[in-house]
């Protein structure tokens, strides 16, 4: 238990620093930035109380917002993801989630990819809608969501492969 708290705290800090110091400066083709910190929401243990998860996600988003001067858009996106994650988990992994036996590294690649894609695209859609704050820019919002989302998913898959937990 304490082990999981420590590893999640370290992941929290490292992902924030990596996001604000490096990834926010990529600006590929002018507007495409990956939001790798979503990885925290994806990997956060599945069997902990949800209220704690919502609270932690809020602070994750708020810290990113403080660095980016973006008000509360990341916080809002993270809180929404934290709130609907059980539904997404049930949707992606089906019955095995209900018995609390899912481990992300043990799931087949297809369902894992589906789970990541749903979370990333919902997160990005909320994020960019709030950033524009104007539904007349719906096309721009969708475009940003799509391209940044692909970039984020790629980075998440790469980091999941790099930091694979050791098989016992």
């Amino acid at each position: 238990m304490t082990n999981s708290i420590i590893s999640n705290s370290i992941r929290f800090i490292l992902l924030i620093l990596f996001q604000v110091l490096l990834l926010n400066n990529i600006n590929f083709l002018g507007y495409i930035n990956p939001y790798l910190y979503v990885l925290f929401l994806i990997l956060y243990p599945f069997n902990t109380p949800q209220s704690l998860f919502i609270l932690v996600s809020f602070f994750l988003g708020l810290t990113i917002d403080t660095f980016e001067d973006s008000g509360g858009i990341n916080a809002a996106a993270c809180v929404i993801i934290a709130y609907i994650r059980p539904a997404i988990l049930r949707f992606s992994f089906g019955v095995s989630y209900d018995y609390q036996t899912v481990k992300l590294s043990n799931t087949p690649f297809g369902t894992r990819l589906g789970y990541i894609m749903v979370i990333v695209f919902i997160h990005h859609l909320v994020l960019f809608s709030l950033e524009m704050f104007d539904f007349s820019h719906i096309f721009l919002i969708l475009k940003k969501t799509f391209f940044s989302g692909i970039f984020t998913i790629l980075l998440i898959l790469i980091s999941l492969t790099l930091f694979k937990p050791k098989k016992r």
Partner: peptide, 14 residues
């Protein structure tokens, strides 16, 4: 908790 924090972050955004 969800509604409270969502409200807070939307408030900060606005």
């Amino acid at each position: 908790l969800f509604l409270l924090l969502l409200g807070l972050s939307l408030f900060l955004t606005i």
